[in-house]
Simulated scan of single mutants.
Amino acid sequence: MISGRIACRSIAVLLAGATLLPLGSASADTADPVPPASGPEAELAPGIPLSLLPLWQLDTPDQALPPKVYKPSEEEEAVEPQDAPEGADDLVEYVDPMDSFGDVTCSEETGQRQREVERWLKRPVDGEQSKGDCQAIRAFQKKHRIRPAIGYAGHVTWATMQLVTASKNPNAAKKCPVREYRVACVDLDRQMAWVQQGRKVVYGPVHIRSGRAGYDTRKGWHRVYWRHKNHVSSLYNSPMPYSQFFSGGQAFHGIYGNIFTGVGSMGCVNLRVEDARRLWVLLKKNDRVYVWGRRPAA
C-alpha cells in the first residue's frame, strides 16, 4: 500500500511540480532513532525534488524513517560538495511584483513584519508603512545587502534583524540548555541555530529553515547518529551536502537554493551550504542537538 501511495504521488509531482511526501513514523523523543523498517521505504532520505521550478522555489522533502546507514568510502568522503550557485545565498526580500519590476525607490506597502521592524528600528509602532519607516528600513537593508532595498518590511529583513540582535549572545533567553559538552541549539521561533559548549558559543548563530506546518522539526533532545558529507537522496537522486542526521530522516544539511522561501522544509534543518560546511567540521557523531519553539507562520 505504501508503494502504491508513493507511485500516485510521483504522478502528482510530474503533473503539478508538488513535493512528494514519503510515509513512515519514528519516535520523536528517543536519543537514537529506531532501526529502519525493511523494504525500499527504509532507504528513503530527504532530498530536493526534480521539477521545472527554479532552485529557489524548491522545497526539501523529509520523512520520519531514518535513511539506510552505512560507512561512506574514503573516495566518497574525500570529495567536497559543490558550492551553492551564485546568488543562491543572497538576502532577497520577496516584495509586491509592482515594487519588484517597477522603478520603485521607496515602497508604500505595509510589510508582513511591519510592527516588528518598526519596533526594532525604534520607530512609532503602528503597523502602517510611512515615509520615515521606509527610509529607516532602506538604510538597514543597504547596510546588510538585502535586495531590493526599497524599505519593505518583509521576512528577510526581520530575520536579519533578529540575527544581528542574537550575534553577541544568542542564548540570552537561556532557552538552550547549557552543558559542558557541545550542544547544537535550534531555535525555531527565530529560525536560527548555533553551537555552544558551556556558555561559549563556538558556531553561529546562522539562519536556518525548519519544517513547515504538519512536518515540524521534532523538538526536544536528539543526538547526531549518522553523518554523510555527500549524501544523495535515493528518492530524488538529489544532493544533500553535509548531512548530519539527528532524528529519523531529519538532519542538518545545506541546500542549493535560498532558505528564505516562505514555505518550510519537510522537517530537516536547512542551512546555507557554507554554514553547513562549517557545522560539519565542528559537530561529531553523538553530539547532542536541542530543538525548541515553533516556526513562525509564513
Rank of each mutant, 00 (worst) to 15 (best):
P85L: 12
Y256C: 13
N171W: 02
I255W: 09
S243A: 15
A42K: 05
E41D: 11
R115G: 02
A16D: 13
E75H: 05
E77D: 14
T60L: 08
M192P: 08
W120K: 10
N169Y: 07
Y236G: 03
L58C: 08
V178K: 11
F246Y: 08
K175Y: 04
D83W: 03
V156S: 01
T105H: 04
H253S: 02
I208G: 13
R115S: 02
R147P: 01
H207C: 03
N258T: 01
A26G: 14
G248T: 09
L52R: 15
R294C: 10
Q141P: 06
V224G: 08
L55V: 11
P296G: 01
L65Q: 15
S51V: 11
V195R: 07
S167A: 15
F101E: 09
M161C: 03
G248V: 11
Y70G: 07
V156F: 05
A139G: 01
G102W: 01
K122Q: 12
R113T: 02
W158D: 05
G220K: 08
R277A: 15
R5M: 13
T110P: 07
E128C: 09
K175N: 10
K174H: 02
E108T: 15
F246P: 01
A173P: 08
Y94L: 05
V79M: 10
K200Q: 15
F140V: 04
G267A: 08
D29P: 07
E77N: 14
N230A: 14
P49L: 04
P97D: 02
H253I: 05
I259C: 12
K200L: 14
A149C: 06
R277E: 10
D287R: 00
L23H: 14
V201F: 13
F101Q: 06
H144L: 05
D103Q: 03
K143I: 06
V201Y: 09
V232K: 15
H144N: 02
A28T: 15
E274R: 07
M192W: 12
G214H: 06
M266S: 13
A26N: 14
Y290G: 07
E118W: 01
E116G: 04
L188Y: 10
A184R: 07
S25V: 15
M161K: 06
S27P: 00
T217H: 09
E128Y: 12
L50H: 14
D62H: 06
E86I: 04
C134Y: 00
G17N: 14
C176D: 00
A88L: 02
A213W: 04
R295Y: 13
D59L: 11
D103L: 04
N237G: 12
R272Y: 13
D62R: 08
V281M: 12
Q244I: 14
H253M: 06
T165E: 10
I146W: 03
L15N: 07
M1R: 11
Y181S: 12
F101M: 03
E86W: 03
I6P: 00
C268E: 00
Y181E: 15
N286R: 12
E75G: 04
E43W: 05
A276L: 12
K229G: 07
D83L: 09
D59F: 04
R278L: 03
P54S: 04
